[in-house]
Each structure stands twice: as structure tokens, then as C-alpha cells.
Amino acid sequence: MPDSSSLLSPVPATSERAVQALIRYGLLWVLALIVVFFSVAEPAFLRVGNLFSILQSVSIVALLALGVTLTMAVGGLDLSIGAVAAMSLMIASYVMVVLGWGAVPAVLISLAGGALVGLLNGWLIVKMRVPDILATLGSMFLVIGVQLIPTGGRSIAVGMTLPNGDETEGSFSTLFLALGRGRLWDIVPIPVLITAVVAVAVWLFLERTRVGRLFYAIGGNEQAARLAGAPVQRFKLLAYVLSALLASLGGLLLAARLGRGDVSSGNGLVLDALGAALIGFAVLGAKKPNAFGTLVGALLVAALLNGLTMLNAPYYAQDFVKGLVLVLALMFTFGLAHRAR
């Protein structure tokens, strides 16, 4: 058969192979180049302390990005993650500072709140058949609004005055603050540790488990997955709940680091997380959402921003740089891959 004989001799031309290599390893090379460049330009860049500060700065965004990777795997998108993180931060602060409860109820109630938003997203998408972007955009606004109501739109700080004139008596427990500020062996920040564990778990889940494989099947062709017997609705719901839970966890780490319930602190997270997950498409030529790529994407942006800051680049250039990296990565993924065919 002609088609089989052609399959048996896959010897692409050199130029084609170069393009293939560029698509596959391009972004990893860029990451390596960034590290080399900054360590030459500013030797302090490579100090262990600074490397961990890069990881620390990236850990929360990476958590959210891993969550959105899961929803992208089922062919969806979760825009509400930033709002969920902010809500989680406000819930935890409210529970500890206003209600005066401990760290454990604060964490549990925050996560429960996150899961609830995930269920709402999933229900809107699966049962109400609202398109994913619209459903999560709607719930994003809803959640941003809801978290402002209990405090009348004010941030929560220890000893603040409530709308009814009372002064709060609770405070952030040290156990809770350790989540954001503690270090393992005095060197590895706890948030970095948590994110690393979650990243490995998400990677294993998507690459090695049956449910992960079915996530990709649903994302690739929902009808084919349904006809092959996959519980499509249940798994999509699961993806949105997991995404919201991870966002919630990210919000908790942020609250623990800040030590206050800052109403505006979750806002920038959603775009950074989406960017990291999208850059991840280009890593190793995956062309699909994947945990490893997401992590590399988040690291790439963080290393770049850290290095630029060290070189005294203006802070307002940050968004421009992020955008540039994202656009270049998307070019790698889609543009070059298309031409290589």
C-alpha cells in the first residue's frame, strides 16, 4: 500500500526537522537563555535566595494556572479563578479577623466556598448549556461582587472597624500565616512546596490516569467521548470544581502572605494564570493544555519579570513583557506548527 510505504520512511528534510525542534524545545531554550542572560547581567540573579523568591512569586499564579489547565483539558475555560482566589482570601480573613475563629475553619470554609463556585460554573455549563467563557465571566462578576458585601467593600485588617461601628477582635493565626510566610528547612517557602505538590498531582492526573485521559478526550471531541461511554457531564463538572478549589487554595496562600484581606489583590491573577497555561501549549510542542507546560509558562514569565526588576526596568513595562511572551509562545504553537505540516 502506498500510504504504508510512505509511513515507513519518515525522514523529514533538515529544515523541517529544525522547525520541528524549534516548536518542541523553543520555549525551554528561551527560558534557559533568560536565566543565562540575567545571571551574566546581574550575578545576584542566580543566588539561591533570589531563585526561591522567583518561585515564591510564581507559586500562587501557578496554582491558578494549573486549575485553568484542567478546565482547558475538557475543552472549557475558567475566567472566574481570579475572583475565586480573591473571595477565598476575603472569606479566610473574615472568618479569622471578624468571627475570631481559627486557621482550620478558615481554610475549610474558604475551600468550600471555592468548590461551591466551581459547582455553579459546572452547573451553568453542563446543565444550563451556557458557553464556558460566558458562564465563568458571569460568575466572575458575581463572585467579585459577593465578596464585597460583608465588609461593605472594605479590606479586612486586624483591628478594623466594621460597618456597624464595632471593632474586630480576631487576628490571623500564626499557623495560618505560616502557610504563606513559612519556609521548610529555612529555605523552601511553603507556598512553593504546596504548588510543587499540586503540580506533580495535576501532571500525574492528566498524563497517567484514566480520568485524565478522558478529560483530554472530552476536550478533543465531546461527542466522540460521549459515544465511547465517557460520563462527559460529570467530568466537566469535576474539572470546574477542581479549578475553583485550586484557585481557592491560591487565595488562601495569598491571604497568608499578605496577612490582611485586601479586596483588590486577586484581580490580576486571572490574566497571569491564563497566560501561563496558554504559554504552556508551546512547551515540548504539546499544542494542548498540559501541567508541565503550564509550570514552565509561569516560571518563564516570573523569571523574566524578576530579572527585569533587578535590572531596574520600570514596573509598568511588566504587562507589556508578559503580553509579548504570550504572543510569541502562541506563534510557536500554532503558526510554526501549521507551516511545518
Binding site: 485521559r213 478533543g220 471531541n221 467521548a225
Partner: peptide, 13 residues
Amino acid sequence: ASQSLVPDFSLRR
């Protein structure tokens, strides 16, 4: 194409 195959899925998958 639209009801049995998943784009990007290998023969094995």
C-alpha cells in the same frame, strides 16, 4: 471524524 475520533489522539488512545 465527528463522532468517533478525537483530534490529536493517537491510534493507541
